[in-house]
Computed example of a mutant assay.
Amino acid sequence: MKVLHVITGLAAGGAEQQLRALLPYMNARCEVAVLTGLGVMAEAIRKAGVPVHQLDMHGNRDVRAVGRLARLMRAGRYEVVHAHLYRACVYGRLAARLANVPAIVATEHSIGYERIEGRRITMAIRQLYLASELLGHTTVAVSRAVADRLVAWGIPRSRIVVIANGIDGAAFGYDPRLRQRTRAALGLPMDAFVVGGVGRLEHGKRFDLLIEAMKSAGDAEDPRMVLLLVGAGSLRRRLEALARAIGVERRVIFTGESADMRGMLSAMDVLAAPSEEETFGLAAVEALAAGLPVLYGTCPAIDDLPRDAAPGARRVTQGELGAEIRALAAARPARLAPPGAVRLYDIRHQVDQLEALYRRLLGATANKE
């Protein structure tokens, strides 16, 4: 079975990280087509031996990319096209239809109530998505929350399959040597209490709340409590300005994108995810695998599990965030053993479900012929 994964870009976001993690475990012969920039994930994917094709798409209206993508699909004779992220779903499904690909799948990673991949949802965005969805065979939702949002948009539940994201827990396991090395590289004191935030620097992640919480969590000049924000995005300058405005700029470190999440998580003492809206919450599960306590605003990955599967994770309100961080900094809890959630979200489960879906769709196509 030959599969082409089509994705909008390969920066270090959740969907991109998820694709990189999936590929080594898939039995199918996989290749990747990226519509726009390569980003840090492209190098990691290529190092794993997976070909990456760049389409050089210039903006949302570069419809010539559809032709280039369709030609790639015909030449590669792919049996399955699997698209990820909004633009890749729209263009990838259309190109796959033009190329007569037998099975067309799209995973919805980032749909919210008001935003999709950080962009405000307009009527045009919604209509284009719905029209392109009809060109595929199945849409994969990464959580029940995503499935419900797709149904609310008007997609029949019969066309949706829920397959949760997965992680390789061992790839995020705590390493004290990595902790020391990463802290040294970032200029972090070994005795500092490090609060981590991981994700795109966009509105939905609400890292502004985390920066504000740092002021209420301790002395603005105290270097022993530091916020480490791992990710890139359009709000970086605004967040930097906020840190300066409230006097905590010396205690907030922006790392930009990083392919070394194990090192970053090893350097942290708690992960805080104050998002008001999430589709899954992959960073929270990775943090649990690293033995970190997790403070979160909303996280379907945790909320969908039995209560005892993630004892180190706790939902907190915006008003509680500073006090919760201050309490953890005072207690300095020991590193936790990875909880049951990590096993339940083992990436091998996700791979098995995806490849079973591919086989079912190919079988259905063969029966029609």
Rank of each mutant, 00 (worst) to 15 (best):
Q18Y: 14
A21S: 14
Y25H: 15
A28G: 10
R29F: 10
V34L: 01
L38A: 15
G39E: 04
M41Y: 03
A42Y: 03
V52M: 02
Q54N: 13
D56P: 07
L72T: 05
R74I: 13
R74Q: 12
A75I: 08
R77V: 12
A83F: 06
A83C: 14
A88V: 10
Y91I: 09
G92K: 03
R93G: 06
A96D: 09
A99C: 14
A99T: 15
A103H: 02
I104K: 14
V105Q: 04
V105D: 02
A106N: 01
T107E: 03
E117D: 15
E117I: 00
R120F: 10
A124R: 14
I125S: 02
Y129I: 09
L130E: 11
V146T: 11
R149P: 01
W153M: 15
P156R: 05
I160Y: 05
N165K: 09
N165V: 12
G169S: 07
L178D: 15
T182L: 03
G197W: 08
G199D: 05
L201T: 10
E202C: 10
K205V: 09
R206L: 06
F207L: 00
D208L: 09
L210T: 12
I211Q: 08
A213D: 14
R224F: 03
L227M: 01
V230P: 01
V230R: 00
V230F: 05
A232H: 04
A232R: 07
R236M: 13
E240Q: 12
E240I: 10
A241M: 11
V248G: 08
R250S: 11
V252R: 00
E257I: 01
A259H: 11
D260P: 14
M261S: 01
G263Y: 07
D269W: 01
D269P: 07
D269K: 00
P274N: 00
E277M: 14
L282D: 10
E286V: 07
A287R: 09
A289G: 03
L292G: 07
P293N: 08
V294D: 09
A301Q: 00
D303I: 01
D304H: 02
R307A: 15
A310M: 01
P311R: 10
V316E: 06
T317A: 09
G319M: 14
G319D: 14
E324I: 02
R326M: 11
R326S: 15
P333Y: 01
A337W: 05
P338Y: 13
G340Y: 03
V342T: 15
R343E: 13
R343K: 12
Y345M: 12
D346L: 08
Y358V: 13
L361G: 03
L361R: 04
G363D: 06
E369A: 07
